[in-house]
C-alpha cells in the first residue's frame, strides 16, 4: 500500500509541478524536507533518551507490568496476540494517556518504546503485526482532551470562545479512533493484508537450520 502511495505522490508531484510551472519549487521542497526530516529525528534524541531511561526504571521496578495488569480486561480484546502482562501493554497505556493529555514530548517516546516491545514479539521483523497496526490506529485517531495548539491560534485571531471546539474535537476523534481500530480488525483478515505464510515458514526454516547447525 505504502509503495503505491509513495510512488503516486512523487510522480504526481513531478507531472503537476511541470504543468503548473512549479518544478523549481518541487525540487526545492524535496531538499528542504529531507533536511527537516533529519532535524525532527535529531530533535527526538534527548527526550527519547529521557523517557527510555525513566521507562527502564519503571520496568525494573515492576511498575509497567502492574499497569498492564490493570488494563487487562480491555487489552485482552484489543490485542489478543499480546500476553496480557507483557511490558508492551504498559508502554502503550502510557503513550495513550500522554496523547489524551496532549503531552506530545512524552507521547512519541513512549509510543516508540511500545513499538520496541511489540517488535520483540514479531516473528517477521520487517512486517507489521496485527497488534502494531491496531496500536497505530489508536494513535492516528488520537483523542486529545484539550487541543491546545488550535485553541492558541483561535485565541490570537480574536475568538470569543476559543475553547468551544473541545467537545466537537473529542467527538470527532473518538469516532475516528473507533473506525480506525475496527478497520484494522476487519482488514487484517483480508487475503491482501494477511501475514504471508511464506514469510513465516522461511523464518522457521532459518531457525531450524540454525538448530541443526548446532
Amino acid at each position: 500500500m505504502l509503495n503505491y502511495i509513495w510512488f503516486a505522490l512523487i510522480i504526481i508531484a513531478i507531472i503537476v509541478g511541470a504543468i503548473n510551472g512549479r518544478i523549481d519549487e518541487v525540487t526545492q521542497a524535496a531538499f528542504q524536507y529531507a533536511e527537516t526530516s533529519v532535524n525532527i529525528a535529531i530533535g527526538l534524541i534527548g527526550i527519547m533518551a529521557l523517557w527510555l531511561g525513566i521507562m527502564n526504571i519503571a520496568q525494573e521496578a515492576g511498575l509497567v507490568k502492574m499497569l498492564a495488569r490493570l488494563i487487562k480486561p480491555i487489552s485482552k480484546r484489543l490485542f489478543p496476540e499480546i500476553p496480557p502482562e507483557h511490558p508492551a501493554m504498559g508502554a502503550m497505556v502510557l503513550n495513550i494517556a500522554a496523547n489524551w493529555l496532549g503531552l506530545s514530548n512524552a507521547a512519541t517516546p513512549l509510543g516508540l518504546k511500545a513499538m520496541e516491545e511489540l517488535q520483540k514479539l514479531n516473528e517477521t521483523k520487517d512486517t507489521a503485526t496485527n497488534a502494531m497496526a491496531t496500536f497505530l490506529a489508536l494513535n492516528t485517531g488520537s483523542i486529545t482532551l484539550i487541543p491546545a495548539t488550535i485553541i492558541g491560534v483561535r485565541l490570537t485571531l480574536g475568538s470569543q470562545n476559543p475553547a468551544e471546539i473541545i467537545g466537537t474535537t473529542i467527538f470527532a476523534s473518538a469516532f475516528a479512533t473507533i473506525f480506525a481500530v475496527s478497520a484494522t480488525k476487519i482488514l487484517q483478515r483480508l487475503p491482501v493484508f494477511k501475514m504471508k505464510e511464506t514469510d513465516r515458514s522461511t523464518a522457521s526454516i532459518k531457525n531450524s537450520d540454525h538448530e541443526e547447525g548446532k
Partner: peptide, 25 residues
Amino acid sequence: VYFGSVGVKKTRHAVPAGLIGDLAG
C-alpha cells in the same frame, strides 16, 4: 516514525486503516 523506529517496512493494513479513521473523523 513508529514503524521506522523498529525497522518495519511492510506496513500491511496500517495505512488503509489509518486513512479510514481519518475519513470517519
